[in-house]
Nucleic acid binder design. Structure first.
Lengths: 236, 236
DNA sequence: AGATATAAAGCGAGCGCTCGCTCGTTTTTT
DNA sequence: AAAAAACGAGCGAGCGCTCGCTTTATATCT
């Protein structure tokens, strides 16, 4: 069983589970009372929004497109959000929330193992973005063009993962495991390689690269860059 | 004198020079006859478009915004392009053209020096995107959302630089200089680190990172990852 | 169990507005 | 005075969003 499959078994990232969380968060705005109905329709709305917005941009997607593709009427849509921007923030907020949840607490066993923690961070980031691919593409592409609140959310979320990587690196340097002149800079350079997996996923797929393969090769590349001695090299 | 300054001295990438090239390319569509007038107004149009589009997205920028900020009237704008999409393609086409021109032919002295060629590619890419920062942000952000022709242009341009990097790596491996298990994969991983310089330039600037510093650190990171022996290490 | 009343959910034509774009007119240059 | 360039009000289409209405689900009462 691949590591990615194990990851999926550990986390329920199904559309329904994610929309249930959106419902909790936005219970104040959503006018539909019955959770089962609300979750089912939110799923239809979000699914369609991600498809259309990732194809031609959120702003270019009209609410009429959304009614046609989702099967819900104009009025029904506005029972779930009070403006198009709120719909955007629902999706963005859920992405940020899941990132905090999944990446926020590494296994305690890795607390004293910076190399393992770095590996875990890279792997988990890739698997998470693979499992929620359209969500992350959406967040990446739309975050900057929209309300201030959304941009700040996205920036602070990115800063968090970046500093987790930097911490693992600094820890490794302190233990003499890594040789990195500037850990912040190294973390800054690693981040875009993680993002590239989902931003240009079609390209990677065309080359036949799976998430597990990308994870393996990215980790090898990064470990070489930070000067981690492999077991063979260390044994010499 | 910094390398970036040398780069700027070697290439005229001023707004006027770039718009002169746009005028050549689109002489058929542009209805204004006198080159001096056409170039000056194209410069105003492109400058304003880049500013507005990079702030809120090309699609969200209305032509009325553009008239107000550029000082040209609606009718005057349409003497320079026949549709909003054509304006987009003018800018995109110029970016792709300059990339081919500047990155397309490395100094001949580096033909038998893969490490030097790799360094030159990374450095030159960073300096070029720094000198034309708003252009590249525009191309990166808007390429996917717009006409098919534009997307294909952007993809093929990216493929070109990627394969130039892969070639330098393969050459280095053949000469026993680099240790890279998969040169294509390594090139794929390097590209997003190059793009990050302009995509998140505000972040880098906030940290006080100059183009020269970023170039230096990126090159060090990549050289470590591909296993290049430094002079000191080789001398041991 | 069937009839009725009430609440919940969904509907979609239409409102005010802004969009990309045109074209008859005016201004500037030669 | 002719040619070139710039102007900007106005067009129809399409936008986000509202609201009076219909349909469906649930509760209540014979």
């Amino acid at each position: 069983m691949s590591s990615f499959q194990e990851f999926q078994a550990r986390h329920d990232l199904s559309m329904e589970a994610l929309c249930a969380r959106i419902l909790e968060r936005h219970a104040a705005t959503i006018r539909v009372k019955k959770p089962a109905v609300a979750i089912a329709n939110l799923a239809r709305i979000v699914e369609t929004t991600l498809t259309l917005a990732n194809r031609k941009g959120f702003h270019s997607m009209s609410l009429r497109d959304l009614t046609e593709q989702s099967g819900l009427s104009m009025g029904a849509l506005y029972a779930y959000f009070d403006s198009k921007d709120t719909l955007l923030m629902m999706i963005l907020g859920q992405v940020v929330g899941v990132v905090e949840e999944v990446l926020g607490r590494p296994p305690e066993a890795l607390a004293t193992d910076p190399a393992g923690r770095l590996r875990w961070l890279l792997e988990t980031h890739l698997y998470l973005t693979e499992a929620m691919h359209p969500w992350f593409v959406f967040a990446y592409m739309e975050a900057k063009a929209f309300p201030k609140e959304g941009r700040e959310l996205a920036v602070s979320s990115e800063m968090m993962t970046e500093s987790m990587i930097a911490d693992a690196l600094a820890d490794g340097v302190a233990r003499g495991l890594f040789a990195v002149p500037d850990v912040t800079m190294a973390a800054v350079l690693i981040k875009p390689m993680l993002q590239d997996w989902y931003v240009k996923r079609a390209k990677h797929r065309r080359r036949g690269v799976t998430p597990d393969l990308y994870a393996e090769q990215l980790i090898a590349f990064v470990e070489a860059a930070v000067g981690l001695r492999t077991m063979q090299a260390a044994g010499r």
